[in-house]
Simulated scan of single mutants.
Amino acid sequence: MVTIADVARHAGVAASTVSYVLSGKRSISPETRERVQRSVRALGYRPNASARALAGRRSNVIALVMPLRTGMHVPVMMQFASAVVTTARRFDHDVLLLTADEGPDGLERVAQSALVDALVVMDVELDDPRVPVLRELPLPSVLIGYPADAAGLTCVDLDFVAAGAHCVDHLIGLGHRALALLGTPSAVYERQTGFAQRTLTGFADAAERQGVLGVETPCEHTFEAVLGTVERLLHDHPGITGLVVQNEPIIGPLLDVLRRLGRRVPEDLSLVAICADDVAERQVPRLSSVTIPAERIGEQAVESLITKLAGGDVAELTLMPPTLTARGSSGRADDRDPATGHRERSVHRRA
Rank of each mutant, 00 (worst) to 15 (best):
D6F: 09
V7M: 01
R9V: 03
H10Y: 05
A11K: 03
A15G: 13
V18L: 09
V18T: 07
V18S: 00
Y20G: 02
S23L: 14
P30M: 02
P30K: 03
T32V: 15
R35I: 12
V40W: 01
G44K: 03
Y45T: 00
R46F: 10
R46W: 10
S50W: 07
A51M: 14
A53Y: 10
G56M: 11
N60L: 11
N60K: 14
I62C: 01
I62V: 14
L64P: 04
V65S: 04
M66N: 05
P67G: 01
R69D: 04
G71T: 07
M72R: 01
H73D: 06
V74T: 10
P75G: 06
M77D: 04
F80L: 08
S82Y: 11
V84W: 02
R90G: 15
R90D: 11
V95F: 04
L96Q: 11
L97W: 03
L98Q: 09
T99Y: 11
T99Q: 04
A100F: 13
D101A: 09
D101P: 06
G106S: 09
G106L: 03
G106C: 08
E108R: 13
A111Y: 08
Q112T: 10
L119G: 08
V120W: 06
V121L: 03
M122K: 10
D123C: 12
V124N: 00
E125P: 06
P129C: 06
P132Y: 15
E136C: 12
E136I: 10
P140A: 07
S141R: 03
S141A: 04
G145E: 03
P147T: 05
D159Q: 13
A162R: 05
A162K: 03
G164E: 08
A165R: 11
C167K: 00
C167A: 13
H170N: 03
L171G: 06
I172A: 14
G173L: 01
L174F: 05
L174R: 12
G175N: 04
G175T: 08
G175Y: 06
A178K: 05
A178I: 04
A178E: 14
A180W: 08
Y189C: 01
R198Y: 15
T199F: 11
L200Q: 08
T201R: 15
E216H: 15
T217F: 14
T217C: 13
F223T: 11
A225G: 04
A225S: 14
A225L: 07
L234E: 05
H237E: 11
H237K: 14
I240P: 00
G242S: 12
V244M: 12
Q246S: 13
Q246I: 11
N247Y: 01
L254T: 06
L255I: 02
V257K: 00
L258T: 06
L258M: 07
L258S: 03
R263N: 08
V265A: 02
P266K: 10
L269R: 01
L269I: 15
L271A: 10
D277M: 07
V279A: 13
E281A: 15
E281M: 12
P285R: 12
R286D: 12
P293A: 02
G298V: 07
E299F: 00
A301L: 00
V302Y: 08
E303V: 04
S304F: 00
I306L: 00
I306P: 01
T307V: 10
G311W: 08
V314H: 02
A315C: 00
M320A: 11
L324Y: 04
G331R: 02
R332D: 13
A333L: 12
D337W: 15
G341M: 11
H342G: 14
